[in-house]
Computed example of a mutant assay.
Amino acid sequence: MACGWTADGADEESSLTGTVYIGGKNDQPGFNLHSGHTDRGFEPDLATYLGKRIGFTPKWHDVVSAKREQELLDKASALVIATYSITPLRDELVDFVGPYFVTKQGFLVREDYEGIKSEKDVAGKVICTVEGSTSAIAALPDGTTPHEESDYSTCVRKLQQGDVDAVFTDEALLYGYVEQQKNSGTPLKVVADVSFGNINRYGIGLPEGRRGDCEKLREALRHYLSEEWASDVKAQLPALVAAYPGDWENHFRPDEEDVDTYSSCKD
């Protein structure tokens, strides 16, 4: 496993120089999809912007949801940018800068499936989600059969094969699969207005105590939200934009004040 940074001294010794190893997902269309030796998506766009502004070159390193905290605790990566929701429990182990995306949770189903139209319809269904995710611990109705996998691509494949009734995770993430599969033999859709669990706020994870790096990232992220966030969402998540015509920024864009509220390094 590649080592993201080795400095164990004072915070002034920044880890955000030269090549910076970033733990990310490699199978999440719209957010980060590794193909042809290249990482494409909203999160690589974000990392490229941060690197140019701060002065480092991102190098991606695959990490699954359940291993994100350990990735930082082991210093295998200097940062984790992996649709990584900021939660109090995670914040006890690692630090966060963000959010850079805000989303409710929802259900992905086959386009011709009408079995879930309201919250009560989820009862009795087989719902796939990912171990170590916030969706895996959300309270679903009694009678729901949860099915956990290590990644969402496997959930989507099982959905298209008819092995599960729906995939449950962040709505923003689901629209990436809608776009990816729109011309496949089994197109998909997000169920409108059906949600459980908390609002999720994606943050940049970093090891605890790197206050200087935290402040650099926070300042760069503030600029990103006003300068390039909207254009990157339009480019990488067109199905999400189409689902909320004229109103998508209100649903998914964090306020600049949110970055101050939820980042571990507060003014």
Rank of each mutant, 00 (worst) to 15 (best):
W248R: 06
L108D: 09
G205L: 08
H223A: 15
R210N: 13
A76W: 06
P99L: 05
V259I: 13
W229M: 02
Y100W: 10
A7N: 14
K120E: 15
E111T: 08
G4W: 03
S135V: 09
Q160P: 06
S65C: 02
L188V: 11
Q160K: 15
L79I: 10
V94L: 15
A230D: 14
I86M: 12
A235V: 07
A138E: 06
D45S: 08
D27G: 15
L188Y: 00
T129W: 03
C128W: 00
N250Q: 10
P187Y: 12
L217Y: 01
T6S: 14
V156P: 10
A139R: 12
P99F: 03
G176Y: 05
A139V: 12
W5R: 09
P141C: 01
Q70I: 09
Y49D: 05
E148T: 01
L173I: 10
A123H: 04
L89P: 04
P88I: 05
E148I: 01
D74I: 03
P187K: 13
A172P: 12
R53C: 02
A239P: 00
W5E: 04
E249L: 03
V130S: 07
C3T: 12
N32P: 00
F107W: 03
D163R: 05
S184K: 09
T6V: 11
G98S: 12
E148V: 01
K67D: 08
R40P: 00
T154V: 14
N198V: 08
D255Q: 11
Y100A: 04
Y175A: 07
L206C: 10
L108W: 09
V190F: 02
S226H: 05
K52D: 07
D142K: 14
L93G: 03
Q181R: 08
L221P: 10
D11C: 12
Q70N: 06
E12K: 09
A66M: 02
P29F: 02
V164Q: 06
E131R: 11
K158F: 11
K182T: 07
E114D: 15
S195R: 04
K75G: 03
D11Q: 09
A66F: 08
E171S: 04
E131S: 12
P99E: 07
D255E: 09
A76C: 12
A172S: 14
T144H: 05
L217D: 04
L173D: 00
L33S: 09
Y244N: 13
D170W: 01
G55H: 01
E215W: 08
G176R: 07
V126W: 01
V94P: 07
Q236N: 15
T103L: 03
P44R: 08
F168H: 01
Y177R: 04
G209H: 06
T38K: 14
P29K: 03
M1S: 14
V191C: 10
D232T: 06
D74S: 14
D255S: 13
L93N: 08
H147C: 01
V20G: 04
G106K: 05
E257C: 02
V233W: 12
F56S: 07
G185N: 04
R157W: 08
V63G: 00
G4M: 09
G246Q: 08
P207H: 13
V97E: 04
S231Q: 14
L33R: 14
T103D: 04
K266I: 02
Q28P: 08
W60G: 06
K25A: 12
L240Q: 06
E228Y: 14
G55R: 02
H223G: 02
V164R: 01
